[in-house]
Simulated scan of single mutants.
Amino acid sequence: MSKGSYEEKAAPGYARSRHELLDAGRVLPPPFDGVAKTSAPRAADVFALVEPMLREHGAGVVLLDEPFADEEFVAFGARLGTATEETDPAVQPFVTGGVILNLLGKNRRTDDVSLQPFAENSLSLHTEGSGRVAVDQPRYIVLMCCHPGPRPTAAQTALVPMEEIFGRLSAGDREVLSRTRYAHLPPGETILREHDGRPVFSFRDFLGGRLDWVNDGGDPPEAVDVALENLHAAMYAPGARGVHWQRGLLVVIDNRRHFHGRTAGTAPAGEPRHLKRLRIR
């Protein structure tokens, strides 16, 4: 066993790529097969459209005539699994019915990580719930747009398939990451694992923060740091897709198949962007 900490260097090679993706105002290409339009008013009908997209791409994108009412939105989530309660005290003013998080882009930049989803900040690429054991991480993230805000190409939701990132890493880096975990997690909860024959990453780009890690294979700290740096570089290599939000757009992301993040937004003087989110286990 070896232990250590990973901290971003003053000028890591991937910093420019991250800036270009998240903070340079780029308009990203749309995800996969584009948007399936539907006037279906019921959760079951929309799920029938989304399910084959999830199987093929690990994400589904559907444009509803009108956003679901909260009851129907929760009913749609129930088709995927069990909605996770929003328990963070900092976000309770934005929670409806215990499980719907209202993502309102109305605030200027903030250093408070809990409030960054409601601010102009970009959000670094991550697996949702990477600091938890795998069984407690969401399987799906469901996002629905009630209002896109004044600039639909700002605050795009960025998607990067895990299989693409896996393919950019060397065999040696993959092996090291499959033996490395966050220090507070128990053995077996590694940054890279396999599920149903696919590579799954459980990881967040901490930006300037420190990541304390444990390697259960005894790899030297230098090898772990190199593998983590190469993972960041692979995450921010060209190829990300971006969701351009419009009213009624509903997106489902498989948390075991995609990293996701968000490009920088602009807090408007008028009506802000409003997405509703469910996290499904």
Results as ranks from 00 to 15, higher is better:
Met1Gly: 11
Gly4Thr: 07
Ser5Ile: 07
Glu7Ile: 07
Glu8Lys: 13
Glu8Ala: 14
Arg18Gln: 11
Gly34Phe: 08
Lys37Gln: 14
Thr38His: 02
Ala43Asp: 03
Asp45Pro: 07
Glu51Gly: 03
Glu56Lys: 14
Gly58Cys: 08
Asp65Ser: 14
Asp65Trp: 05
Glu66Arg: 15
Arg79Pro: 01
Asp88Arg: 13
Ala90Lys: 13
Ala90Thr: 12
Val95Ser: 03
Ile100Asp: 05
Arg108His: 06
Arg109Val: 11
Leu115Pro: 10
Val135Lys: 13
Pro138Thr: 02
Arg139Val: 08
Leu143Asp: 00
Pro148Arg: 12
Pro148Cys: 04
Pro152Thr: 09
Leu159Tyr: 01
Met162Gln: 15
Glu163Tyr: 00
Glu164Thr: 14
Arg179Ala: 13
Arg181Asp: 03
Arg181Pro: 01
Ala183Gly: 07
Ile191Arg: 05
Arg193Gln: 13
His195Val: 05
Asp196Thr: 08
Arg198Val: 00
Arg198Thr: 01
Val200Met: 09
Phe206Thr: 09
Val226Ser: 10
Val226Ala: 15
Ala227Gly: 04
Leu228Ser: 11
Glu229Met: 06
Asn230Leu: 05
Tyr236His: 02
His244Gln: 14
Arg247Gly: 04
Gly248Trp: 03
Leu249Met: 06
Val252Lys: 06
Asn255Glu: 12
Phe259Ser: 08
Phe259Glu: 01
Glu271Tyr: 02
Glu271Trp: 00
Arg273Met: 00
